[in-house]
Amino acid sequence: MSFTIRGQAAKPNLKRMKFTVKTPLLVLLLITLAACERESSPTTTQPRPHLVEVVEAQRIDLSVRRERTGTLRAIQEIQIFTQEEGQITELPFFEGDRVKRGEVIAKLDDRLLRAQLNRALALQKKSETDLNRIRDLVERRLTTAAELTQIETDLAIAQADVAALETRLGFLTLRSPIDGVVTERRSEPGNIADRYAHIMTLADQQTLITEVRLSELLLNHLSVGDTVELYIDALRTGSAAQTPLYGEISRIYPDIDPMTRTGTVEIALHPVPLGARAGQFVRVILQTQRSERLLIPFIALRRSTAHPYVFIIDDDNRAQTRAVQTGLEIGDQIEILEGLEPGERLVIRGFTNLRDNQQVTIVGSASNGSNR
Rank of each mutant, 00 (worst) to 15 (best):
T361W: 06
T45A: 06
L337P: 03
P244A: 11
V347T: 07
R322H: 06
I232K: 01
F281M: 10
V310T: 04
V272L: 08
S304E: 11
L72E: 02
E248S: 14
A35K: 06
T23Q: 12
T143F: 03
L169H: 05
D356I: 10
G263N: 06
Q320I: 12
T153W: 06
L72D: 01
T173K: 05
R277Q: 14
T144N: 13
L26V: 14
L346I: 08
R345V: 09
P177G: 09
Q124H: 08
R261N: 12
L214P: 02
A120Y: 01
L222T: 02
V64L: 12
T237G: 05
I60A: 05
I232A: 02
A74N: 04
V162H: 03
G364E: 11
E229W: 04
I249G: 05
Q205W: 00
Q8E: 15
T260K: 06
R213S: 14
V228I: 13
G190R: 07
T264C: 00
V228M: 04
L337V: 15
K125Q: 15
A106H: 01
M200K: 04
G350R: 06
I267L: 07
A10Q: 14
T288W: 03
R185P: 01
L235D: 04
P49L: 08
E85C: 01
K22P: 02
A160F: 06
K100T: 08
V265N: 02
R213P: 00
E338P: 04
P177I: 10
R293L: 09
T71N: 10
L222Y: 01
I78S: 05
V54E: 03
R175E: 09
I296C: 00
N368Y: 07
I252C: 06
E147K: 14
A106Q: 04
D233Q: 12
P308C: 07
T201N: 07
L245I: 07
Q320T: 10
T153Y: 11
K107H: 00
I134Q: 03
N191R: 13
A300K: 02
R186C: 05
T361D: 11
Q358C: 09
Q87N: 07
T71L: 05
R277N: 10
I105Y: 01
T43L: 12
S176Q: 05
L26P: 02
R6Q: 14
R277V: 06
A193H: 04
S41W: 01
L202M: 11
D233R: 12
N132K: 15
S127N: 11
P244V: 10
N191S: 13
E292N: 14
I78G: 02
R290A: 14
E248H: 15
T167N: 13
L172I: 05
I60V: 15
Y309D: 04
P12L: 15
V99T: 05
F94E: 14
T20L: 09
M200L: 15
R6G: 09
T149W: 06
I285S: 13
S176M: 06
K107Y: 00
G170N: 13
G327C: 07
S41A: 11
P12I: 15
L202S: 05
I60R: 08
L131Y: 07
L245K: 05
G225V: 04
L169C: 07
S239N: 11
R168S: 12
V182P: 01
H198Y: 07
L301N: 04
E53C: 08
D356S: 14
M200C: 06
I80K: 00
L174E: 00
A10F: 12
D130T: 09
